[in-house]
Design a binder for these strands. Structure first.
Lengths: 238, 238
DNA sequence: ATTTATAAATGTAAATAATACACTTAAAAA
DNA sequence: TTTTTAAGTGTATTATTTACATTTATAAAT
């Protein structure tokens, strides 16, 4: 029988307890106009040097795990104020062969156009589409799968997809984003209907001429309406 | 700039990194035929002796956090093989005033009839309905709220409610359970329709005579059908 | 024995939401 | 001027959700 807090009656420190390493690992999602991708690093350090993994880092003395995830993310991409969401804590005593480390995962949604390529190059990082991603070290494959599931759920309940898009985007880009996240095809008329009834987009005068002769109108999302209309969540089922 | 894993090029141990205490805290849900309740303990140890809190314990050298949650749960209730679901890791450096401790929460679903009252008495534990629960120490109040939200989501997507009921239960008990979890009234005809179309219940010959003159039929849930019909999730919206 | 009281059991119609589906339009390129 | 290409748009069908009231079985009371 191992001790539990209750048995330590009236002690006021926890000095006999096991102290462990705590890390964060980031599942960095980006959208390159066609597909959802994740940013992976090729490890240039042991253990598992040369293999692909998530970017991570150890929790420092005065950081929350969210601070740490932000730091890790900025180190790799140069971006700050990025959308981050905690997914799960992984605690198998043998998950890291060097020393027991628990890892808390966060997924990040970034507009992949924005990231600093210099930094990602330094870290031998590369974007992979989800079905072409290499095998990952440790339990990182499971972490990615878990993060995708969480992202799918979150997408159906909050319009976080906008975090992955540039400021101005076309209806078609938004649709492709939803398609790639939810991994299913969506009818464009039904999609537009659904998005319009959320009433969070502003249609601009401007058109994007890169994808067709006719051009397609650009939209931004209206932060005020977005907050007003979505504070009780949305239901996005298509 | 604090170190991240990448900067430790080619090291194969993490000896310079900060080691922290890791705890689990359990949000124990039970259902007493009318209401969803949580089991809280009155602390007979410092810090915050005499105040109410969740039951928790430190992660031990060879345990996963799930093992630890199971252990904590068995210590308090005598139950094992209980439904447990990880919720969130809390990492604020100041969340525990004694020493920095990160806490991973799990919610547990138990049939409150089953728990060992001797043990709960020993730990000065008590069941509280959600709106009558006392103020909790540290960030435990937030943990409970977060766990309720997660339970609501999970309930709408998997029929985990059965974990909270005795083996045999009436349709009305099941309905009250859903009502208390989702915090809304449900029409009994619509409820029965929805449950029946899930096709996971077996109607028994037996009746429960305690609640009415007519008596109400008892049901159990059919484990095989349950697994077959729900492996792709359910949609429980009422 | 009959009446009364109580919760259990049950079905249908209306409203809302989701899905399936095809033609017209704008503009550049040929 | 014609061709090509993706953008833009609406309606009918189906499925799901919601609203709603009466009958029934039994124990308790008379």
């Amino acid at each position: 029988m191992v001790p539990i807090i209750e048995n330590m009656s009236s002690v006021s420190n926890y000095q006999d307890q096991t102290h462990l390493l705590v890390a964060v690992d980031c599942i960095i999602f980006g959208f390159d106009k066609e597909e959802l991708k994740i940013l992976l690093i090729k490890r240039n350090f042991e253990p598992e040097m040369g293999k692909w993994s998530l970017m991570g880092g150890f929790l420092q003395p005065n950081e929350t795990s969210e601070n740490a995830a932000n730091r890790v993310l900025e180190t790799l991409t140069g971006l700050h104020d990025v959308y981050l969401d905690q997914v799960h804590a992984y605690t198998d005593p043998k998950r890291d062969p060097v020393e027991r480390t628990i890892s808390i995962t966060y997924y990040a949604l970034i507009n992949s156009e924005d990231h600093n390529e210099e930094l990602t190059k330094q870290h031998s990082a590369q974007w992979f589409s989800l079905n072409e991603a290499p095998e990952l070290i440790f339990d990182h494959g499971q972490m990615v799968q878990h993060a995708i599931n969480r992202l799918r759920y979150k997408t159906s309940v909050q319009p976080i997809g906008f975090e992955l898009l540039p400021e101005k985007f076309t209806m078609r880009q938004l649709q492709r984003l939803y398609e790639t996240i939810l991994n299913e095809e969506i009818d464009k008329r039904n999609f537009a209907k659904k998005i319009n009834q959320l009433d969070v987009l502003i249609k601009l005068e401007e058109k994007d001429m890169s994808s067709s002769k006719k051009g397609s109108f650009l939209f931004t999302f209206d932060k005020d309406k977005y907050e007003a209309n979505t504070k009780n969540g949305i239901s996005f089922k298509l």
